[in-house]
Design a protein around this nucleic acid. Structure first.
Lengths: 241, 241
DNA sequence: ACCTGAACACCGTTCAAGT
DNA sequence: ACCTGAACACCGTTCAAGT
């Protein structure tokens, strides 16, 4: 066979299969030949759809970021007539901002919901997080995400410089938490933790068994701590009357 | 030549050269053949010193973690006779703990200093952070680090479960911040940020130029926010009398 | 336009051979 | 004990050839 009547491949199908391979066997397992085999074509066929392997990886990454919920940013849907004119720019006590007729979700609540969705999307595909953490580059979904977060924070009353920092530090925390399980990083073999060398790690071999709750608990604790700390700073910025 | 009188290689020399290669050209540039060339030997020679490339990477990672300052954990040096017997387990108001004759650095201060050193060590070698973030495994320096942090937090009065979570969330934040520059992830090309698609990113092309200060500022803001948030929790745990 | 096999310069690792 | 060249089964990518 040379050219089939209906194409054997599509960017979509390649991306989905590549992501599955990365999830199941790691980033190193994604070779163009292996992926092609998985798709029942020969290796070079992929180059009809992506110029390079990096371009393919970019598409995979953006498909993951596309899963992140951004609906908490910007004017809320549920709130009355969509677009009334005028604006009363005062930040409310909880960080809520009301332009006439528009209701924006208070920034701490929006950040919390977003961070949870962000982490869930990334933690479902930990093996690709190192690629994704390199930044948005030119990937549309990643840029949309950055735009939505920054826009919401500025609208809420954060100075632009601070809003940038908050976007950055939230990404630090979320990517760090999705990159690898903390608990699973400790060998389940009790022999590893010699009491003479590591006097406080006597129970560390149990960590891997509680992987889910340990990592979930650490993420939630860190997220709430971060939001509390940021709220303190926001109050200093715009104190209650 | 077959076996030289004095060995051409040592684990130490291999590790140092591998880390330089990873820093300069990325993790993918570290091939056994390329590394061997750099060391003026043939590829298979490395297998006299490391069983696999993974074992070599492990050694590189642990050498980086070895640079992290842990001196703020445990009984402080400057404080009187080194080892007095007995223990009065009450946590002081600022989180300081005094066993007889021992002074421990208050936990928020210790965590802050450690986090800065941790981040500095990792950010000096961002390309290896994905490997290192997989957890301590059996690497001595990584286990020592986990032991020191956990021991200090427990001694300061944190319940063991919370201490574990704090160790985890601090690692999330530090590895996330060292994995990649936030600022450098945004292309410096202004054309990328079409106002119709990304209404709030009009200045994003300037980010890369302020890479150092943006990332440093985000890290410091996040660190202080985290510590403030954790202090609130600690107060709830052990309120002042 | 889209797929193929052959080819190029690479990989990590094994192994017999040298001293 | 420690290094070598040859060899194996892999890589990403190019390209001429097919329909």
């Amino acid at each position: 066979m040379a050219r089939p009547r209906t194409p054997l491949l599509s960017r979509e199908r390649i991306v989905v299969t590549a992501l599955r391979l990365i999830d199941d066997e790691g980033l190193d397992a994604l070779s163009t030949r292996r992926l092609a085999t998985e798709l029942s074509v020969s290796g070079p066929s992929l180059y009809n759809h992506f110029a390079t392997k990096d371009e393919l990886l970019d598409a995979v990454v953006d498909s993951v970021i596309g899963e992140v919920d951004l609906s908490m940013f910007g004017p809320a849907r549920a709130a009355g007539p969509a677009r009334a004119a005028g604006s009363s720019g005062a930040a409310g006590p909880a960080g809520a901002v009301a332009a006439a007729g528009e209701v924006w979700t208070p920034w701490p609540e929006a950040l919390r919901d977003w961070a949870r969705s962000y982490r869930a999307a990334l933690a479902a595909h930990p093996n690709i997080v190192p690629v994704l953490a390199q930044g948005p580059g030119r990937r549309p979904n990643a840029l949309r995400l950055a735009d939505a977060v920054f826009g919401h924070l500025v609208e809420a009353g954060w100075p632009r410089g601070q809003a940038t920092r908050i976007g950055a530090l939230m990404r630090y925390f979320v990517t760090g938490s999705a990159l690898a399980s903390f608990a699973a990083g400790f060998p389940a073999d009790a022999e590893v933790y010699d009491a003479a060398d590591y006097p406080h790690l006597g129970e560390a071999h149990r960590l891997a068994g509680h992987r889910g709750t340990v990592d979930e608990g650490a993420f939630e604790t860190g997220l709430e701590a971060l939001l509390d700390g940021l709220a303190l700073r926001f109050e200093r910025l715009a104190p209650r009357p």
